[in-house]
Design a protein around this nucleic acid. Structure first.
Lengths: 198, 198
DNA sequence: CATCATTGTAGTCAATGACAACATCAGGAG
DNA sequence: CTCCTGATGTTGTCATTGACTACAATGATG
């Protein structure tokens, strides 16, 4: 009404940034395009210039989330040290990220994305799996992990940590400290993946 | 307008039944109290007599889902046969249920429930874990599973199958048949849980 | 300077959740 | 039998929201 230039300057980025905050605080259900516009001091229809509809914004958030997650995972996978320790680090990194950004993870794995961005999200999800599969393949080469398609073993590893994060967010771990539950899960997982000796 | 007795007779049950169908077909986001009322031929405010608000209906659906899931799990746990086979059956039963009722599972584990029903949901979630823990304790008694708090080992087992179901629903298993992914995950899990020989 | 795609605004519509006031019905108290 | 009362359903209304349309300001480009 009273101030500011006609054009915001970088509304798209501002929308995404504000949306991330709201998502973290109130979950995806609490995200309203009009509320975002109000927060940023623009008109209620301005967001539509950057996101076709609400779902498009949610999709963009999911993409951003996967990108950041993949960076973390790659960093963990490329850390120095023996391969099994790196695998465990990868798992811990995933659980930490998932619990710290629970509503975002929900978005990332929720199955209701537009057809086109769905392809991109699958692609990004695969990158997470590929990172894990790469490390598993390396462990196999060192004779530390059972033989088998690394991609499929990565699915199993991923399932374990993702499920654990879900339980944690859902308050189903009770008084078990998350770190302890994570360590136990990773121990069971890595033991199960290990090459059967003898 | 033109027909039917003033009182529906069993609106609450009818709402829940219809809501389950809509949930399965369109997900939780597609659930509208007014649409339900239209479907059942009652006025738009009638549902409010049975569910304080939309969330209360979703909570009731989640409770119903957990109850049915627990029945399935109990049946699998009490099936005849050796304990390890029953553990695997329990896992398969979970994955099947989760994939067949993906939006319902989302609801059950989504963290945005009213404070009071949240307690009931946690309680029901624990029953699932307890069923698993009971079977694990039995396996420990037979010397088949590593020592340790059965409740915590059950958390790990639960994580694995729940995460696997999430991956499957999110189309992240690619062309891997779900049954094969499940078998592999259960093999890794049960191997990891097994008592370390020697 | 003139043009025009981009970006933002103002106005509108239908759908929805929530609420309030009123209507109907069933069953018990007297 | 009559009256009362609580449970259940209806009608009316409001604010919020997503989506759409027409219009306005901006600034890049020729």
């Amino acid at each position: 009404m009273t101030e500011g230039p006609y054009h915001h300057g970088n509304l798209r980025a501002a929308l995404l940034e504000r949306a991330e905050t709201v998502l973290a605080e109130s979950g995806a259900d609490g995200l309203s395009l009009r509320a975002l516009a109000r927060d940023l001091g623009v008109s209620h229809a301005a967001p539509s210039r950057h996101f076709r509809d609400r779902q498009a914004l949610l999709d963009a958030l999911a993409v951003s989330g996967f990108t950041r997650l993949n960076e973390r995972l790659r960093a963990a996978a490329e850390a120095p040290g023996p391969v099994p320790a790196r695998l465990a680090g990868l798992g811990r990194a995933y659980v930490e990220f998932a619990v710290a950004h629970a509503p975002l993870l929900d978005l990332m794995f929720s199955a209701k994305h537009a057809e086109d961005s769905s392809a991109e999200l699958r692609e990004l999800g695969h990158r997470s799996l590929d990172t894990t599969a790469g490390l598993i393949a390396r462990a196999q080469a060192e004779g530390l992990v059972r033989p088998g398609d690394p991609a499929r073993l990565a699915q199993v590893a991923f399932s374990t940590v993702h499920g654990l994060a879900t339980l944690a967010v859902g308050s189903l771990l009770d008084d078990t400290p998350l770190a302890e539950a994570t360590d136990l899960a990773l121990d069971v997982l890595l033991t199960g993946l290990a090459r059967p000796h003898r």
